[in-house]
Structures are given as structure tokens and as C-alpha cells.
Simulated assay, not measured.
Amino acid sequence: MKYNRILLKISGEALMGEDCFGISPEMIQFVASEIKQVHSQGVQLGLVIGAGNIFRGMAGAASGMDRANADNMGMLATVMNALAMQDGLEQQLVPARVMSAIPMQTVCEPYIRRRALRHLEKGRVVIFAAGTGNPYFTTDTAAVLRALEINADVIMKATRVDGVYDRDPEKDPQAVRFDTLSYTRVLQENLRVMDAAGISLARDSNLPVFVFNMKKQGNIVRAAAGENIGTLITRQ
């Protein structure tokens, strides 16, 4: 494996599978089995999961809700996804802990950085839930923040396409994939890898971001091994 400690960012939509809403048990098991392959190689893993399959704060705000309330609802939805993923991992006999930025001790552990590091050192997968615990910050930014706090070697963003393209590859078959990109170019060309705050934070700390297609079996292991199956974003 190329990396010893990884922060894996998974979108909430990925957990829907072929459904239109909610959590697909089949998709949970697929992702858990993929993570198990990496975990079995001795890689320490942290996870951040979005909430687009249940509730998206930005969408709620766009429909007239108070933005802070909508974001709080979105953060709570990430806890549901995190608990589902924890269950899926434990069914695969992979030890996992959910740590929430919004305290809810009867459901999961509160996020404490030193405790999270200890879990990782003991070989447990740590699932960071509830974003940063603050409205107006996306789970992309939360993923970069947690990656920096746990001293991750890389943040891997699992998507439904195999990297970053100059155009939407789902709409334009002539779209060209980038093997490497700089943080500055991502921001200047608004390539929408993740939100600008997240990319800026990664740039300021020189944290590599790797974008790849999670839906292909074995890709998480390949990404952890450093194979060129996506787009690597660095300072260049």
C-alpha cells in the first residue's frame, strides 16, 4: 500500500445504490467489503459520509428553510449514514467506531481528536459524522478538516466517475480526464471536485486529494496502492 492512513470521503448518494432515496443495504455491504480489503492490508482508515441520500442542507435552504436549521438536519442525516456503515463494517468483522461532531452519547461517541487517533492506532475504522458540527460547512470541508486532524497521508474522494474531467463525462463523451491537477487550477476553473473551502484548506496544508470511481470493484484497494485510476490533486 502506498498510504498508511487515509481519509475516505463517500457521498451520501453513493449509498442509495439503484434506489432514488435512502440507504441501500446492498450498497452498504459492497462498500464495507471494499473497505475491508484495504483494512486487511494494515491501512488505517477514517471515513466521512455525506447526506445527499437523505437530506441536503443547501437544498433545504434553497426551498426557503433557515440555512442553519437545514444544515443541522443535514448533519444529523450523516449520523444515520455513519451508523449504517458501521453496521455494515461490523458484519464484515471490521471494527468500527462512529464519532459525531454533535454530541449524542446514547448513539455514538463524541468526536475527540486524541480518541480518534487511538482508535486508528488500534486498527479500528473511524467514521466521522455530523460534519464539522457547524452550519455553513459542507461534508467536503469536514473531510479535509478531519484528514488534517488525524494526519492522513491523503484524502480520497469516492465518486461515480473515474476522476476529474474538463467537462461532465456523463453528458459529453468527448470529455478529457486529468491525471493530475493543481489546487489552483481546480479553483480557477471551478472544476467542482469539492467545494472551494475544502480545496483551499487542502492547498494550505498541501494535503493530496485523489478522486476516483468507487463503484468499480477493487478500486479502493487500487487507489490505496497508488494506482493511476483517477485524478491526483496536489500543488504540482
Rank of each mutant, 00 (worst) to 15 (best):
D195E: 10
I112A: 10
S40K: 15
N4C: 07
A51I: 01
A130D: 02
V144S: 03
R203V: 06
V38L: 09
P169G: 03
K9S: 12
G123N: 08
D172K: 07
I150Y: 02
L117Y: 01
Y136G: 10
V31R: 00
V126P: 01
T139P: 00
S182C: 08
R167A: 12
E170C: 11
R56G: 02
A101P: 01
N81V: 07
Q217R: 15
V209S: 03
P95F: 03
E18N: 15
R113K: 14
T78Y: 05
P25G: 04
I54D: 02
E18R: 15
L7P: 01
R167D: 13
R185Y: 14
A116W: 07
R160F: 10
A77P: 01
A32D: 09
L8T: 07
L47Q: 09
S40D: 14
E227I: 04
S40G: 05
N213F: 03
A14P: 11
A197Q: 13
V94E: 09
T180N: 13
F30T: 14
R67C: 04
V161P: 05
V98Y: 12
D66T: 08
I6G: 05
M85T: 10
L89V: 11
V144E: 04
Q174Y: 12
A82L: 09
N81W: 03
S24A: 06
A101I: 04
T231L: 08
G42Q: 04
L148K: 01
L45C: 10
A51W: 02
G88F: 02
A142R: 05
R177Y: 02
E34R: 05
I49D: 05
